[in-house]
Design a binder for these strands. Sequence first.
DNA 1: GTCTATAAATGGATAGAC
DNA 2: GTCTATCCATTTATAGAC
Lengths: 193, 193
Amino acid sequence: MFNAQGEPHVTTNHIADELEISPGNLYYHFRNKDDIIEQLFARYEERMDAALATPSERLPGLEDIWLQLHLIFECIWDYRFLYRDLVEILSRNRRIRLRFARILKRADDSAHAVMRGMGQAGVMRATADELAATATNILVIATFWLNYAAARGDKDEQIAIRRGIVQVMMLVAPFLRDAERVHLNTLTQAYLD
Amino acid sequence: MFNAQGEPHVTTNHIADELEISPGNLYYHFRNKDDIIEQLFARYEERMDAALATPSERLPGLEDIWLQLHLIFECIWDYRFLYRDLVEILSRNRRIRLRFARILKRADDSAHAVMRGMGQAGVMRATADELAATATNILVIATFWLNYAAARGDKDEQIAIRRGIVQVMMLVAPFLRDAERVHLNTLTQAYLD
DNA sequence: GTCTATAAATGGATAGAC
DNA sequence: GTCTATCCATTTATAGAC
């Protein structure tokens, strides 16, 4: 319901209705609306933590990154209500704020690790500054891509997700070795059709 | 007030209080709360349209872009309430939604024009695909940078703006000729101290 | 655990006098 | 134009019976 209508438009009464229980009963199971959000957030957190885990021992190839981005974007999609009203939700709840900041930190580390791995594999070349800036840009694009799609008025949201993944890949592309940049281009073309 | 507290937390009564007029009087001047937002949006729109205008006849240098980004980020900062709850505000008001989509389109055109200019000046080199992707990424970063800073828990928001500008510049950097990339690096270092 | 009933507060908006 | 008064709808949350 949060995803479909936006968290601000879903009241506790709506939730109780949907569950076919009384509002009173709902408040027996949850302290308040924020508690509901917090428990949903816990599931989101677990899922995103899993998606951010370094996927394998060996050095990452383009396909590994592609897969990981998929997991991340699917997670964002499934909890898009968090992202839609992110600042508002975080401003209301200190605990969620801290936990989301931790996720961002972890995502930043993960992006760094993946790109470092590509550097070691000789596939990517970037200075430390470029690496840091790119990691940050990856986070911002991933975090707010759905909002951007909504603001632009995009209808088909499944295509929007694909575009988001491509968009993140394009952040890394300039630092790739020629062979891999061509490879990425092939992947991208096939993916957007 | 919208900027300070977030649009959802500012009631029409608060606004009337702040203006030291009665709620009834407020509703004499504005049809409803959305009408207030819409009139603020009109000012924002005018300002952003000005900031997005191509700044000069001659081919753009790095400093020109820097200045234009400043104007854009200052505008975003002054109307940050729009960006904080962007999806929510756009979902409530069809007119604002269309007008904001137009601004995004204009911004995209502007980013394209500037980068094409740099290509003509021989300062930048990118394929059409790279150019399009970079333009999009510039929009997303600029649009949601303040939200990202808030989500990360950044306190000093003036520094956050500077970081945003640098972050956008870093999107373009990989496509710059060596001399200009060094130049950009110098500008960036000086700017963040 | 689940319900009904309702408190308590808020917020958008209007009526009608001045 | 400005005010007071107030309506109306909504929303969160609780009390207390079953």
